[in-house]
Write a protein that binds this DNA or RNA. Structure first.
Length: 750
DNA sequence: GAGCACTGC
């Protein structure tokens, strides 16, 4: 990343002058010996290392007992300052954690092997303790390197880093830091860095050998995020080039054998967790209506089970709000008629404002009279409650077995959200939520046979775990054109990011610098040609964040009126740009919170767009892409912006079909309607769209009107009329071409 | 005249 550069150079330069370090035999290493002797005299040593409890540690030869002694103080082995009372208090609890018993076993394995798989169930302490075990043995600061520990989520990276900083009695951002998008809390002293997996992946783009790191710990590998999967593929190759790099793959589930196999039978260490047993119940017969069955189960738990809160998993906002209403109603009746305890119901989903999300942590209501039936809280949530948010006090989990998942249909090239059965791994994760504080129960609203036979093991497809190039080749050899992959390659080829041989082009290289979808990146990179890169920069940021328009069910009309204030008749893109410009205006900036509220706009989304814009701007400056604007009074101001849209989204164009309201997509001839939220009038003949949504009907959303001659002019390869498939679109474009030619010839003859 | 599960750069 651009803003990371200076620090990288500072780290790299002195190292280049140093003698080569043989990591496997530090005792025989003249450089390390030199460090041990010079007690922090400033001769290349790290901050008083030699004076601390680590000075006689031999890298990759340490023992648990040695680390134990160093941890006992009295001074902090990493900065030689006296350790606090709080430190010793935490130390005691840390030594009770299950992983602690196997510290020596871990070290033995860590010494012997380059790659190691570590399985620790929830509550084992793996995320906080293993990186510290590594730190005391890998001693990254002796080599001017770092230990990295990746997390799939930003909040986890931040909160775990804070926790470990407390455990090690250091200030966050010094010896222990974290790095997430838009936030780098690390410094020159940092030895252990928690970071998001995506962040490490970005760094790897510029540092192919991950040279800054002496050890990389991939945590929560079982979650199989795209970034973790790609990192695993990458690390497998980096390991060959860098025999000195240690790698630890950490996972929560026992099918970690898959990871072992992937890393050439890497050794595995498993540590039990500290969770309470969860009893699983299945329904004897399949349920026809899972929402109805879920409500029944929740109410039955409330009526018959002892004290303890309930967590119900449903699939989306509407379903959850509806269920909350029904549960509250039924519970009131139970209280009146059957002397049931009070029941509080809380919804929980991602788009819920943070304050409302926080309400789930309110304590359960007390019994309505002393000695009466227990009060309870019920949380009805999406799978955000599966991994992202942990709620203590949950004793009962109700799992209907469904979640909304992104499904890509390569045939019609549409991505949509579908309610689908969850995987076994998810089901286990959900059940585990019942046993965090005491033994719990999980009610699965499907049969045991269905769990065993119908649920897939893991949610992510195998393809993400394989070397893609190889997979493509194999698929081709087998005569199978994997549609998803082939279409992706084809699109990148049309966007001129890949050449006809599948190699990365200059444009492709540049596009990969941006944390954006390729079409957005290409639009942004091309925008100076249309004299509007400042505006496209804003628009790109806006298109990369959640919806800026807020439309609460209680005030739809007023929200729409406010939106009309920003309306631009040429489409939603320009309307969004108007919003952004107004938001950056003096009036709005005086009190952004109030202004957004009054105008039914999401402050969070706009601030986030601002953040993204700044980041993209830095990358543009670094890549020397000009930032320019057409004069606002020029009549081409808005036209230029719409033309720039076509440079990235020429494949997402729809043409009006006959005289009605339907449109046909250029790409696949799909019938679509303009989404009702659009500001565009239906008389636009050609539109460019940002998104295809499949709900009750096929819609294109965030649309702007464009002219057919722009398509021919800006994307001639895609709209090559000699090869373009026959049909309505081609006929219309041919007519356009004739008209343009006629105009040119009449001009010439004049 | 509609509805967006969840992450991440």
């Amino acid at each position: 990343m651009a803003d990371r550069r200076p620090e990288l150079e500072e780290r790299e330069m002195p190292r280049a002058k140093r003698p080569r370090v043989d990591d496997r035999d530090p005792a025989s290493n003249p450089y390390l010996a030199h460090m041990y002797e010079n007690n922090g005299n400033g001769n290349g040593g790290y901050n008083g290392v030699a004076r601390t409890g680590l000075s006689d540690f031999k890298r990759h030869e340490t023992t648990a007992a040695q680390a134990h002694t160093a941890e006992d103080g009295p001074n902090n082995p990493f900065n030689n300052t006296p350790l606090s009372k709080q430190y010793f208090n935490i130390l005691k609890t840390r030594r009770d954690l299950p992983v602690h018993k196997q510290r020596q076993e871990f070290l033995d394995m860590f010494h012997k092997t380059q790659i190691l798989v570590f399985v620790g169930e929830t509550g084992s302490g793996k995320t906080t303790q293993i990186p510290q075990f590594v730190l005391f043995d890998d001693l990254p600061h002796f080599n001017g390197k770092l230990v990295a520990c990746t997390q799939p989520r930003r909040v986890a990276a931040m909160s775990v880093a804070q926790r470990v900083a407390n455990e090690m009695d250091v200030k966050l951002g010094e010896e222990i830091g974290y790095s997430i998008r838009f936030e780098d809390v690390t410094g020159p002293k940092t030895v252990l860095k928690y970071m998001t997996d995506g962040m490490l992946l970005r760094e790897a783009m510029h540092d192919h050998n991950l040279a800054r790191y002496s050890c990389i710990i991939l945590d929560e590998a079982h979650e199989r995020t795209l970034a973790t999967d790609i990192l695993m593929g990458l690390l497998k190759e980096v390991a060959l080039r860098r025999p000195d790099l240690k790698i630890v793959i950490m996972s929560a589930t026992l099918d970690a054998q898959k990871f072992q196999r992937y890393f050439n039978d890497a050794p595995l260490l498993a540590v039990p967790g500290r969770t309470h047993p969860v009893e699983i119940f299945y329904t004897p017969e399949p349920e026809r209506d899972y929402v109805e069955a879920a409500l029944r189960t929740v109410l039955q738990i409330h009526a018959t089970e002892p004290e303890g809160d309930i967590l119900l998993f449903l699939t989306g906002e509407e379903e959850i709000e509806d269920a909350c209403r029904k549960i509250s109603l039924e519970a009131d009746e139970m209280i009146r008629e059957a002397d049931a305890g009070p029941l509080k119901v809380y919804p929980l989903y991602g788009t819920l404002p943070p304050q409302q999300q926080q309400r789930i942590f309110e304590p359960a209501p007390p019994p309505s009279r002393p000695g009466g039936p227990p009060g309870r809280k019920v949380i009805v949530g999406t799978n955000i409650a599966e991994t992202s948010l942990t709620i203590d006090g949950i004793v009962y989990v109700v799992d209907p077995g469904f979640s909304k998942q992104k499904v890509y249909n390569p045939r019609i090239r549409v991505e949509s959200l579908l309610v689908s059965p969850i995987s076994k791994a998810s089901a286990q994760q959900r059940a585990g939520r019942a046993g965090r504080t005491r033994p719990g129960k999980c009610f699965r609203l499907y049969t045991e046979a269905a769990f065993k036979k119908e649920l897939i093991e893991q949610t992510y497809p195998e393809i993400l775990r394989s070397n893609l190039a190889n997979t493509v080749l194999e698929l081709k050899k087998l005569g199978i054109d994997d549609l998803t992959l082939m279409r992706a390659l084809e699109e990148l080829n049309y966007l001129a990011c890949l050449d006809d041989d599948g190699n990365l082009t200059q444009l492709g290289k540049l596009a990969s610098e941006f944390p954006l979808d390729p079409a957005l990146a290409v639009m942004l990179i091309s925008s100076p040609e249309f004299y509007c890169s400042n505006e496209i920069l804003s628009l790109t940021a806006l298109l990369s964040v959640p919806q800026v328009f807020v439309r609460p069910a209680s005030a739809k009309k007023r929200a729409d009126q406010m939106k009309d204030l920003f309306k631009h008749e040429d489409g939603d893109h320009l309307t969004m740009l108007n919003v952004y410009h107004a938001f950056k205006g003096a009036e709005a900036q005086a009190d952004p919170k109030r202004w957004c509220h009054e105008h039914f706009l999401s402050l969070r989304a706009l601030q986030s767009a601002d953040n993204v814009r700044q980041q993209l701007k830095r990358i543009m400056e670094k890549s020397e892409i000009d930032l320019l604007s057409t004069d606002f009074n020029d009549k081409e101001y808005y036209t230029n912006i719409r033309r720039a849209l076509v440079a990235g989204f020429f494949m997402q164009v729809a043409k009006k079909d006959g005289s009605g309201k339907t449109y046909k997509t250029v790409k696949d001839d799909q019938s679509v309607l303009l989404h009702p939220s659009t500001v565009l009038a239906v008389d636009s003949e050609w539109v460019v769209y940002n998104e295809f949504v499949l709900t009750t009907k096929n819609y294109v959303r965030t649309v702007s009107s464009v002219k057919p001659e722009w398509l021919l002019d800006i994307a001639p390869n895609y709209y090559d009329l000699t090869t373009f498939k026959k049909g309505d679109v081609r006929t219309a474009l041919e007519r356009t071409l004739d008209r343009v030619k006629r105009k040119q010839s009449t001009k010439r003859s004049k």
